[in-house]
């Protein structure tokens, strides 16, 4: 039995104040948002943050081995260190906050509407709302959501003890999920429509595990079940249909940007990602973006953190020019 106490989230932080005009309000507290907060605060700006989950998707990652300077750490511990660093600067954070709307008024100032009819004001906004798991988009997926179809291996893995599961996907998240699940499940079948694109070092790890099998160039076309999931139907390269019995389907096929706030406000690319330039500027002056929600390629913790810093410095320049 262990304890995963998250001091940074539980400890009360200073309250976000509706009467203050902030220099920067940051939406999201993943690596991009937290690093933006750190850099903005160190520039002497007044900073506030909105969070629905401290650490963003990093907390769903069991092990992180590619953050420079830290050879191996759990996603959760890494977040803890990020949050402790930011908390030391006493930045007000509105927790469990749904931001409903961002608006730029004629006076050039931003108004952010949060749930419960609260309005916060700022000179600049940094949007770091991250991304959410992409769905397979096949028949049965929504029907069996929470009844065998799952998107968080570390959360739901324990419920599949000694059962058979399928992992859909071939990237790092999929292979890591398969490795995690192999510790509790009886058998893990990785099904991916093309070739594996996970890092070689992770694929090598997977190949040593007895109860994982890999099925490539196979496309899942349906999730089947009764009360709960009991199998999938897939199509191989030649178009032949196969049926694989399973108790669970873990979907790890990438991410979609959380762009609800950005729609109609700034330019998006074809994938729905917020377009940013070299300075993390969006198409709306004063609104910056960083991390997985943007069109910056390669969704990585270190890249998000770096872009968060960039956005903060860029916001600082913008504020200096306002004066």
């Amino acid at each position: 039995m262990n304890l995963n106490f998250d001091f940074g989230s539980v400890k009360k932080s200073p309250a976000l104040d509706e009467n203050i005009l902030y220099d920067v309000l940051i939406i999201g507290t993943g690596p991009a948002g937290l690093n933006a907060a750190l850099y903005a605060k160190r520039k002497g700006l007044s900073v506030g943050m909105f969070t629905s989950k401290m650490g963003g998707q990093v907390v769903d990652t069991s092990i992180v081995e590619n953050y420079l300077g830290i050879q191996q750490v759990t996603g959760e511990q890494l977040v803890e260190q990020f949050v402790a660093h930011v908390n030391a600067l006493k930045i007000p954070i509105l927790k469990d906050a749904e931001v409903l709307k961002i608006k730029k008024d004629e006076d050039g100032l931003f108004k952010i509407q949060a749930s419960g009819f609260k309005i916060y004001r700022s000179k600049t906004v940094i949007m770091t709302t991250g991304s959410k798991p992409r769905k397979l988009g096949v028949k049965g997926e929504d029907t069996y959501l929470g009844r065998g179809v799952a998107y968080c291996a570390i959360c739901d893995g324990p419920l599949f003890e000694d059962r058979n599961v399928i992992v859909a996907g071939g990237g790092n998240s999929a292979i890591e999920a398969a490795i995690d699940l192999s510790k509790v499940a009886k058998h893990v079948q990785v099904v991916h429509r093309s070739q594996l694109r996970a890092d070689q070092i992770i694929v090598d790890k997977l190949k040593n595990i007895q109860n994982i099998d890999i099925l490539l160039e196979t496309k899942i076309v349906e999730v089947k079940g009764d009360q709960l999931v009991n199998g999938i139907i897939a199509e191989d390269k030649s178009g032949k249909t196969i049926e694989i019995p399973t108790d669970g389907v873990f979907v790890e096929i990438g991410y979609l940007p959380n762009n609800a706030l950005a729609k109609g406000l700034v330019e998006l690319n074809d994938h729905g990602e917020v377009k940013v330039n070299l300075r993390a500027e969006t198409s709306l002056p004063g609104l910056f973006a960083a991390g997985d929600v943007t069109d910056v390629p390669y969704k990585q913790i270190v890249i998000s953190a770096g872009d968060g810093a960039k956005a903060a410095l860029s916001a600082n320049d913008y504020i200096n020019k306002m004066k």
């Binding site: 989950k53 749904e98 749930s115 929470g146 009844r147 065998g148 968080c152 959360c155 739901d156 709960l228």
Partner: peptide, 24 residues
């Protein structure tokens, strides 16, 4: 209650949803 994803929220044993959804 067919729990196979968490958090699963069940209200009055009748209405249910999955995930840490907004208070709304």
């Amino acid at each position: 209650f067919n729990v196979s994803s968490v958090p699963k929220i069940v209200i009055n044993d009748q209405y249910e949803f999955v995930g840490n959804q907004p208070l709304e």
